[in-house]
Design a binder for these strands. Structure first.
Length: 238
DNA sequence: TCATTAAATTGTT
DNA sequence: AACAATTTAATGA
């Protein structure tokens, strides 16, 4: 659980197939794109592996190619507080990269996946150069803001079962586009950190939703059967 | 490939 | 928070 990714050592250039998955590349001019591609690297990550940790200097702007990652911060007691899940197509670190600070959060892989990194210098160069790139980064920031607000809304909800359901849905929502993996590998302990409940209460909530047929609990993870039921939890009294 | 053991995770109290 | 039961991962014959 404590291995940390070293992009420098394990990275390689991207295949053209992987490059096609990076949407913002299409927003660049050929010249800009060439320079961006030159400074892009990818690395395989194993479940539990950290991509970046709080306090480390920013060297890359990261993007998820495949897999599922979670963004969390270390609280003062050393507990982990999860903010949000990051699905394929999501890029992060722009906030800290902009200010050239150290990372203020951890990014950890929930399952094995592929992570891409654009060197910060290139990131800044693109910000100075490309209008389309700026627009993309702005959209990312806005999206992140929305996620934080949603996270706060979930925090306010009183019913623990509902909180678990909505948190799961939030983690899944962006991921569950047609045909995508419906198995979420996350322990009940991690989920407990995610929603801010005790592990046994999460266990109880999972049993509840399992009985409702919305999920299927498995060892070391769970399967989402009815995302809509999770999303709409708490809306209509049940 | 199978049996044994350790570690991780889950289900309960 | 602690415990037992279950599942997975690792090891070595």
């Amino acid at each position: 659980m404590n291995t940390s990714l070293s992009l420098r050592q394990r990275s390689r250039a991207l295949t053209s197939d992987e490059l096609h998955q990076i949407r913002w590349l299409t927003l660049l001019t050929p010249h800009e794109r060439r320079r961006a591609v030159e400074n892009l690297r990818v690395a395989e990550v194993n479940p539990g592996e950290f991509v970046c940790r709080t306090g480390k200097p920013v060297t890359y702007w990261f993007g998820v190619i495949t897999g599922l990652f979670k963004m969390s911060a270390d609280s003062f007691e050393g507990l982990n507080v999860t903010f949000t899940g990051i699905p394929p197509g999501g890029w992060f670190g722009e906030g800290t990269a902009l200010k050239r600070e150290a990372y203020r959060y951890n990014i950890q892989a929930l399952r094995e996946g592929l992570i891409a990194g654009l060197h910060v210098e290139t990131f800044h160069w693109l910000l100075d150069q490309s209008l389309g790139f700026n627009r993309f980064v702005l959209k990312q920031l806005n999206e992140r803001l929305g996620q934080f607000i949603a996270a706060r809304e979930i925090d306010r909800m009183s019913n623990p079962n509902v909180r678990v359901a909505r948190s799961l849905a939030a983690l899944f929502n962006p991921v569950l586009y047609p045909g995508l993996e419906s198995v979420l590998r996350i322990t009940q302990q991690e989920l407990a950190y995610l929603v801010g409940l005790s592990r046994q209460r999460v266990n109880e909530a999972l049993a509840y939703w399992s009985a409702q047929g919305a999920i299927q609990v498995e060892y070391g993870g769970l399967r989402v059967l009815d995302l809509q039921a999770l999303q709409q939890a708490g809306l209509n009294p049940n």
